[in-house]
Amino acid sequence: MNGQPVPQKTTTPMANVNPSGFWKRSKNFRVAMLYLFPSFLLFSVFVFYPMMKTVYLSFFLTDYEGFPSLFVGLENYAYIFQSESFRKSIIATFIFVLITVPFGVLLALFLALLANEKLKGIGFFRTIFASNMGMSVAASSVIWLFLFHPSIGAFNQFLATFHLPQVEWLLDPSWAIISVSITTIWMNTGFAFLIILGGLQNIDEYLYENANIEGAGYWYQLKRITLPMLSPTMFFIITVSLINAFQTFGQVDILTQGGPAESTNLIVYSIYREAFINYQFGPASAQSVVLFLCILVVTILQFKFGEKKVHYQ
């Protein structure tokens, strides 16, 4: 507190304009800033600076180390929008998002509804359903890599026992995106399950007891009580799942490397390839900015149209 002016005890209106008055009045603000400082620092280093730098780089061509060498204005953007590969990547990403988010959230909701029933030993299932949260993307991708293996993979062996035609899970361009989606749904279920289960357990038991006395059946209660009461949780999990789906990278890298025929070249993987394989940091940055805008628009739309259906208590 050294060097701080001594607050003057005065009741004249002048007190409001002299420096000590300002110093006193801004006390709350200064305290708030002090508390916010650690987050500002971390966000600046890990979020704001890289973001700015990405926008900056998207206007340049770079050398192989990523240093800007030639200012090209919006040419990087023009280039990526003309690129067939980028357009395919955008389409693949939207297909991927449209598969993983609805099915992932519905699966998690289904499991959470099951695990919320009061049954003996339900704790075991709650643990199991949530347990893949603890697995890294790399480890689970490798497991799925084995499951999808064309000859020794469990899926094809299973199909073979019923004399069904074999599926080239990761090698067939039309199947690969589905296979990656299945893997992603499986990996995200644990987190979504846990959040939804938490939301379910937060619903007052008395609401159901009253409904039981009134004679409402299971489906009626689900539709009229559970889902509306769960809407804030569902809104949160859908938002997070959407953002996560747009940013999927690890499983693509391990399962397909964007192939076959770029069918699983999701946008973040495409950015990665552009930047770290082709050393085209400029176009890669431009893609990142486009991705950022996509997520921003989708999230804004979701808040605009989705939140009306959310019942906050």
Binding site: Y206, L207, N210, N212, I213, G215, R224, I225, M229, Q313
Partner: peptide
């Protein structure tokens, strides 16, 4: 009998109103 078959109504301590 199920609660609904007993033909009664109940008021709960926390009212159990549906907030939505």
């Amino acid at each position: 009998l199920m609660p609904s078959e007993r033909n009664l109504s109940m008021v709960f301590q926390n009212y159990a109103l549906y907030p939505h």
